[in-house]
Nucleic acid binder design. Structure first.
Lengths: 217, 217
DNA sequence: CGAAAGATTGTAAGTACTTACTTACTTTGT
DNA sequence: ACAAAGTAAGTAAGTACTTACAATCTTTCG
């Protein structure tokens, strides 16, 4: 009755085995890439295992469910993103004039999209899919980003340097210009041939348009 | 041996039955809604059938595969969207001054997002999912939209009314402001409380910022 | 007209396959 | 010796799609 499941002894492979942490990172990296390209439902645990080069069962040793793996990714990246936001804000706030400050902001956002476009895609996906964690992300990080800009603009309005625009509308305008640019570039125009200028020059021109748009006449 | 499958005679329901076309439309409508909310993979044919109030098998009588149903939706909406774009362009082109023209454009885009936000979500989804049909959509309709704006801006630069901006960068800036606004509103801020102004007022202010941004100094 | 024939709409009960997740067991490092 | 890493082979619950057949509408022809 009690027949061994395999029927044969597994032959010993002399390969170095990995620590749990290493494997965990490997799985997370592969999963993020796949989730970003095909969405949560569109990605199977089998695919993740294949891409990560691990046995499928290992995924479930590290993360109880597929959803937990997803949550772990967002959780991990969220912290990273929070740090990045404050770093960019600090750097931007150090600038002496508006142009330098908005340029720093624009470049920071574009750089993040370029370097971490995968995660941005994943965020977009999860925004659509309506994940709770994602909602949290937007309601903390993105709103913080938004508020920082709105506050800055409000101050400049009070200074009399900007004309009396609604600071929040203006902030959304600026973020819209930049993130739309980044998104279009990522999804449809990676070579930037539609614009005929490189990303940095485009960022500079967008900043110019925005600043002229809110400057006192 | 040859036992009837059901075992009992189906009792005749005196309900009016629908024409194929009606059912088709019903299925398409329900499917679009679900695809937009949960993505292609995230939606099951069973759910679609339930939402449309039809038997699951009916879906497959009208559309050979789930993919064909998806394609039919995009195909149908694509035409509709094309018509809408030319109508908005015509209307915008009729305006006498820049402000009226950009306002017409902005309101047109926002209205489409508001009225057909479902389809916009579906488009975003399929952009992420990398569907071929979607790519086609963007490379025809959206580029057309973009080119129309860029041409208009280029003309105004030649007129000397706008300063010498890169017309394509400026066009992307404007579309970015408007579509980002629409997206944020749809996904995170349906009440518009983050901006503290209604959508129409926001559109007007965005247009003002943009026009001041590209105006000759 | 009216009714049989033929086409179309509708449905319950499948099928073959995939999916997330488990289990029982082996190998390796300390 | 013991715990952690690793694996092949499951399993139950979906999944897209099919089939066999019943109800109802439309057309044709006496």
């Amino acid at each position: 009755m009690a027949v061994t499941r395999t029927g044969l002894k597994a032959r010993p492979k002399k390969q170095r085995r990995m620590s749990g942490q290493e494997r965990r990172r490997q799985i997370v990296r592969a999963a993020m890439d796949l989730f970003a390209r095909k969405g949560f439902k569109g990605t199977t645990t089998k695919e993740i295992a294949l891409a990560a080069g691990v046995n499928e069962a290992m995924i479930f040793r590290h993360f109880p469910t597929k959803g937990d793996l997803y949550a772990a990714i967002i959780d991990y990246k969220m912290d990273q993103c929070g740090e990045w936001i404050s770093r960019v804000h600090e750097e931007a706030a150090r600038r002496k004039d508006d142009r330098a400050m908005f340029l720093a902001l624009a470049r920071g956002i574009l750089a993040f999209h370029e370097q971490d476009g995968t995660f941005m895609r994943l965020l977009l996906y999860s925004a659509l899919e309506g994940h709770e964690l994602n909602r949290m992300f937007f309601e903390t990080q993105v709103v913080e980003h938004f508020e920082f800009l709105a506050d800055y603009i409000a101050q400049r309005v009070r200074d009399g340097a900007f004309r009396p625009v609604n600071p929040r509308v203006a902030a959304r305008a600026f973020l819209g210009m930049i993130t739309h640019h980044a998104q279009v570039r990522e999804l449809f125009d990676p070579q930037g041939r539609l614009l005929n200028v490189d990303s940095d020059a485009a960022a500079a021109e967008l900043v110019d348009i925005f600043l002229a748009g809110v400057a006192r006449r």
